[in-house]
């Protein structure tokens, strides 16, 4: 890519700005002080199926998968998508959310693995 783009000076500048933008967005956020919530997957069900979290605050959500099979935690409303291997756990950050209900589901077992996050 670099070799090919060398003839055009614009791209250099552009890439640098994109890189700076990325760095800028990584730097100031620290992972401390975020409340942690947990959800369990058992027999392709979410426990709890309804999780209440504080609104307007970033939250760390740990999803434990107690089944032997992998599951994909997915939510259109939260814009999240993560595969959690069997007997393992996964972390996603969500929020800060406006008060409301945000449904999520397990993509590999859409009939039973359903739940929602309620931000209050």
């Amino acid at each position: 890519m670099k070799e090919i783009l060398t003839p055009c000076p614009h791209l250099h500048r552009r890439w640098r700005s994109v890189l700076l933008f990325l760095l800028w967005s990584i730097a100031p956020w620290s992972h401390a002080q975020t409340p942690v919530f947990e959800i369990e997957i058992r027999e392709h069900l979410f426990f709890p199926a309804e999780l209440v979290i504080p609104a307007n605050q970033k939250v760390k959500l740990i999803i434990y998968n107690r089944d032997d099979t992998p599951e994909e935690f997915e939510s259109y409303e939260l814009n999240r998508e993560k595969v959690i291997v069997g007997n393992s756990q996964g972390v996603v950050f969500i929020g800060p959310l406006k008060p409301g209900e945000y449904p999520f589901f397990g993509e590999f077992n859409m009939k039973t693995a359903l739940g929602k996050i309620i931000a209050e």
Binding site: S25, W29, K58, E81, K82, F93, I94
Partner: peptide, 12 residues
């Protein structure tokens, strides 16, 4: 960008 914000690399 969705993955990056999920990993908290990009801010919410």
């Amino acid at each position: 960008s969705v993955y990056l914000s999920q990993a908290d690399v990009l801010p919410y």
